[in-house]
Design a protein around this nucleic acid. Structure first.
Lengths: 177, 177
DNA sequence: TCCAACACGTCCGGAAACGGACAGTTGTGT
DNA sequence: ACACAACTGTCCGTTTCCGGACGTGTTGGA
């Protein structure tokens, strides 16, 4: 398997090196020492996953930087999975991170095998989100969902989809529903 | 605003009562003392959110029951938001819960205002997931995503969507892209 | 019991979408 | 400079889809 394209964003060079080393067999890594450097790297390359530290400022432990970074990444590439890392892991911070769209949340120091597994899972998720379906499939899924939601009531489903009843009819026929 | 339809699943009657009371002004609640009772309630009614305890068996603190319950709920209603609760909150359990699709993760004992806010947010999320878009919008979004992913290359985007190039062309025109 | 309301399934003439083809443009390798 | 490949934008004869309308079956209230 080809190596994954990983971006490591952490202000501590030792942490970046340790992560790069631990992941050497599964991922090729670029590094960013600041959120701005991270933005630049995101603009320049396409990544499969990001490893993002939550506490850039020394002594900072609220995780504000990490959440900010998460937002920036989503803005640059909405489908890119982000693994948050912190040494000061409170449950509330973990919950907030994942609710905001983080793919995973790891505590430092990490176990190397857990880190590798998390990165691979995150990369896989990114690929899945990027994958796009043929237009027909998209339509079929929307039709199925509408029919389910309205318990098979064709007239109501058609109205919800903004389509005439015969039109929905034809599609049901077309997709074998 | 109308009261929300909430399902409280916890084996401890005192916990159920406390939650019901704390939420009296925002939600009407049904209760289930076991996962099986929860399934029955799900089959019988449609809810806006579920409050699910993670530790049914006494002394159990792995959260296995909660994750199992979460799976069951998703099977019964994939769009229904679930708030997980536990008294033994480890970061790893919180992370696992949210990665599996939980909407939120609260520690017992809870603050009543935080609980109410979580329930309202979860219910809102449920409604959003249930809401279905007109077929045209679904198509427009898929087209936009395909074009973005291929940097505006029409021929490639059309191929990815399984559509002839003129067809994509017409749609771009139609949606003002 | 009767009637109104609703959903179903189908028909058909008009309208829109289909996609192969063509010519023009850009960019790359020799 | 030239050939080649890929992309673009448009045309047009054919096919498909559209949705209003009609007749039927079922349901629920007067």
């Amino acid at each position: 398997m080809e190596k994954l394209a990983l971006l490591i964003a952490d202000d501590d060079a030792d942490v970046r090196s340790a992560a790069r080393l631990a992941l050497a067999t599964v991922a090729g890594a670029r590094e960013a020492a600041s959120l701005d450097a991270m933005d630049a790297a995101l603009a320049e390359h396409t990544f499969d996953a990001v490893l993002l530290d939550m506490n850039f400022a020394l002594g900072e432990r609220s995780g504000r930087d990490g959440l900010d970074g998460l937002d920036r990444i989503r803005r640059a590439d909405p489908d890119l999975s982000v693994i948050l890392m912190t040494a000061f892991g409170a449950v509330s911070l973990a919950v907030e991170s994942l609710k905001r769209g983080g793919a995973d949340f790891l505590l430092k120091p990490w176990r190397n095998d857990a880190l590798a597994a998390a990165v691979e899972a995150a990369a896989l998720k990114t690929c899945e989100k990027r994958e796009l379906l043929p237009l027909d499939d998209v339509e079929r899924i929307a039709v199925e969902k509408a029919l389910t939601r309205h318990d098979g009531n064709i007239a109501q489903a058609a109205a919800a989809l903004g389509v005439s009843r015969p039109a929905l009819y034809r599609r049901m026929n077309k997709y074998g529903l």
